[in-house]
């Protein structure tokens, strides 16, 4: 694996590149934001971003197999599942709220389905 040998060289020289530091910092930041943000749609988008950053981190660690699986499953399919679940929750929510005021509030939301 070319990726692995490149990382071995980096280990040998004890270098941690600027990209790696930024990547690790961004991962923690986005993870905290994902947990902290109140808007569920924003949380879903941040979760997907976190998956993509994680895929980059795996690639930097010389594990391209894991990186591909993370990008395709962790960010792609899981992201689609989370967004689908969010959409379903909104559907349920409108049913639960009826067509009352809560429902119209939801309509105004920017993550409303329409």
């Amino acid at each position: 694996m070319r990726g692995a040998s490149r990382i071995d060289e980096a280990d040998a020289t004890g270098m941690l590149s600027l990209i790696d530091i930024l990547l690790a910092g961004a991962l923690v930041m986005v993870a905290l934001l994902t947990l902290g943000v109140r808007d569920l749609f924003a949380a879903a988008v941040l979760f997907i971003s976190n998956g993509l950053l994680l895929a980059l981190a795996w690639a930097r660690l010389g594990a391209p197999d894991v990186a591909m699986a993370e990008a395709a499953i962790g960010a792609g399919i899981t992201g689609a599942l989370v967004l689908a679940a969010l959409r379903r929750m909104q559907t349920f929510g409108e049913r639960a709220d009826g067509t009352g005021t809560a429902g119209t509030e939801r309509e105004g939301d920017r993550d409303g389905p329409c």
Binding site: A72, I73, I77
Partner: peptide, 17 residues
């Protein structure tokens, strides 16, 4: 080389999505 059933399957599933 890096690749395999899970990666291939998830890319195809993503096409379906």
């Amino acid at each position: 080389a890096p690749g395999g059933a899970f990666q291939a399957g998830s890319v195809i599933a993503a096409a379906g999505v």
